[in-house]
Every structure is written in C-alpha cells, then in structure tokens.
C-alpha cells in the first residue's frame, strides 16, 4: 500500500480530521471543506483491466482521461459518460460526486456502473466491498452507497466499474422545437424501442443521439426524421462537460434540477432539458435559494452549481426522517465525523 494510504489511515486512527479531494475540478459542489484537503491524485494507476470481462479497476486518483484513452484502445468506454470540468478529473472524484453524462438515460449512472471499491472508513480501516464481477449480492451495497457521498462515508482508494463496448455507430438527429414540443417528443420517443443514447433540448433545438449497429442507427434516424447534426461529438461533449454557452454563469448562478421526466416545462424557464427531461438546467439570481422549494414541490430536487456560493452545501435540504437516517448512516461509517467535514450533509441539529 502506498505511503499516502498508510498516512491517511494512521491519521484517522488517531482521530485527526481529514479532507481529501481528487483534482478539485468539482470543488464548487457541496459545502466548503473545514480542513485543508489532501489530493488523492498521486494514488493513481490501473489495477486491472480485462476487456472481455467488461471490468476495469483503478486507484481513485487515476485521471478519467487516462481511463478513457485506455478503454478506447479496446473499443470500450465508461458507460456513464462522466462529466469533466477540468483536464485532470479523477475516477475517485467522478464516483464521489456521482455525476453522469447524457448517456445516463441509456446505459445508467455512475452509481449503476460501480461494481466494487476499497475505502478507508472513519476508524482508519481499509475495507473492500463489492468486487470485480457483474453480479454480487454478498453484504450491503456499500459501493453504491458511497457514490455521490463526496467521500464523507470513507476515503475512496480503489474502484471497480463495469465498462461497455463503444457503439459501432452514432448519429444525432436534430429538430427545431419549442421546449413544450420537445418534452412531448421526448416522451413519445421514450415509449419506442429506438436505440437512443441521449435526448437533450437546448436553444430551441431537440437533439436525439442514436447509438448501435450501422443499419440499426440509420433505420432509426430515418424513422425519427429531422436533420443530421454534422459535428455531433463536439456538441455532446459541450453538454456533458458544461462547455456549451447555455451553462455559462455571468451574472447568475447555474442550478441543476433532477425531476420526474414528464414534469411540465412551464414551471420555470428551463434552459437545458437533458436526460429526456429528467435533468434540467436553469439560472437564477445569486443567493436565491427558492429553487429548493420549487424542485421539491415538483417531486425532485435542486443542486447549486455556482462557484460563487459561500454558504451551506448548495444541496437540497433533506426531509427530516431521511436526514436523521442519513446522519446515522454517516455515523456508522465515520463515527467521529472526521472525513471531509463541511462538504456534504448539513450539520446535525
């Protein structure tokens, strides 16, 4: 085991608080860390990759770009299309934040892809849960529980994920539609077994990405109609990694709303509808936290994506019972509350 892992475990055993980050490309999410963070970036490297087993295991600090390059050589990919907000985003960071790209509606989320992990809990114990096989129901699913927990349930050190083949062909059809028309099309398309791998509406255009076999994709494109987008890779990267101009935050803050996909579009002026309507992006005035209430009333939740936010976690307040349970779960893994203080759950009242 590396010196870094031994040091982290030793510090936790001595009940010293500790904060970890990957490359800090998603530092604007969640609350400010109380303790000066250490980077996991040096704990990097592919541990195991066997294309025909559809599994990759890497240390948490491994760069996603390195993983993507390696997988592409064998014609494979991470199915959840992890968003990267910087060159150096790590696998550990992707899992800790739990974010997924446009392909999520087709091949599942980061949480769906994880198969196993190693973590250092709050007692400084280095533990292993899950494994490197597709199906595994031995013990509670602590791997999935840790996805999106921002490291607060334990320091992620090694992660195994399911990988999938790159599609033989991809093609994107686009349509000039209002948001209301786009949403009804998303619903209509979703009820058909087309090989759709992303559906996004932005700037009065609906984009439908088809992924699959050559003839299958072409036949589906013909059935859907619309125009074929020329530079589709660039477009989908801009949606996935937030480089599209609609994500820009000049005077206003960017918010993510995760909603039941059929939620009407007239509730607020959404700027981007992704995930076939289930993930929506909107801007709001700085320090306006009213979206929490709105999102909850619509059966979903909101997350603030602004780096200017100085207070709180920018995350949807939990319902009282869920909050109580969450604090007990945190205590089960980190009984002294040492790891990543301030980052995730609001302090227990």
């Amino acid at each position: 085991m590396s010196d870094l892992i031994d040091m982290l475990a030793a510090r936790l055993k001595n009940k010293q608080p500790i904060s970890v980050i990957g490359s800090n490309t998603k530092g604007f999410l969640g609350g400010a860390l109380t303790d000066e963070p250490l980077s996991m970036r040096e704990h990097a490297g592919i541990v195991n990759y066997e294309p025909t087993e559809l599994v990759l295991t890497a240390k948490a600090g491994t760069a996603l770009s390195e993983i993507n390059t390696l997988l592409a050589k064998s014609g494979q990919m991470l199915p959840f299309e992890p968003p990267m907000f910087g060159e150096d985003s790590t696998l550990g960071g992707a899992m800790a934040s739990g974010l997924s790209g446009p392909r999520r509606i087709h091949l599942g989320s980061a949480r769906d892809a994880i198969l196993g992990l190693r973590l250092i809990n709050g007692l400084g114990q280095h533990l292993r849960f899950g494994g490197e096989v597709m199906k595994n129901v031995a013990g509670y699913d602590l791997s999935r529980l840790s996805v999106g927990a921002f490291g607060t349930l334990g320091i992620l050190t090694e992660i195994s994920v399911k990988v999938l083949p790159l599609p033989e062909q991809e093609r994107t059809q686009m349509f000039t539609y209002s948001n209301a028309r786009a949403l009804s099309e998303m619903i209509r398309i979703g009820r058909h077994p087309y090989p759709v791998s992303a559906i996004t509406w932005v700037n009065d255009m609906l984009y439908v990405r088809l992924s699959g076999t050559g003839r299958g994709v072409d036949a589906a494109a013909k059935a859907l109609g619309g125009e074929t987008l020329a530079n589709q890779k660039r477009f989908w990267n801009s949606i996935c990694h937030h480089m599209h101009p609609s994500f820009k935050q000049d005077q206003e803050w960017l918010w993510r709303l995760s909603l039941p996909p059929t939620t009407p579009v007239n509730s607020i002026p959404f700027e981007i509808l992704d995930w076939a309507g289930a993930q929506r992006w909107v801007h709001a005035a700085p320090f306006d936290y009213s979206l929490f209430e709105l999102a909850e009333s619509l059966g979903g939740h909101a997350t603030c994506f602004s780096g200017e936010r100085v207070e709180g976690t920018g995350m949807q307040p939990l319902k009282p019972l869920v909050m109580q349970l969450s604090h007990r779960v945190k205590k089960a893994l980190d009984p002294f509350g040492l790891i990543n203080r301030g980052r995730f759950l609001e302090e227990a009242s």
Binding site: G98, L145, L259, P260, P261, Q279, H301, V322, S326, V329
Partner: peptide, 22 residues
C-alpha cells in the same frame, strides 16, 4: 420513510441503493 424518488436521483446519500439487496 421513502428512499429514492420519481426523478432519476435523489439528494443525500443513496439510501435506495443500500436498501436494495439488504
């Protein structure tokens, strides 16, 4: 208590994931 929602993900820890298979 309800864990998960009609949206594709929920705030806080993924208590739904740990409930399934428990």
């Amino acid at each position: 208590v309800t864990v998960g929602s009609d949206a594709l993900d929920s705030p806080g820890y993924d208590l739904l994931a740990v409930t399934i298979g428990s």
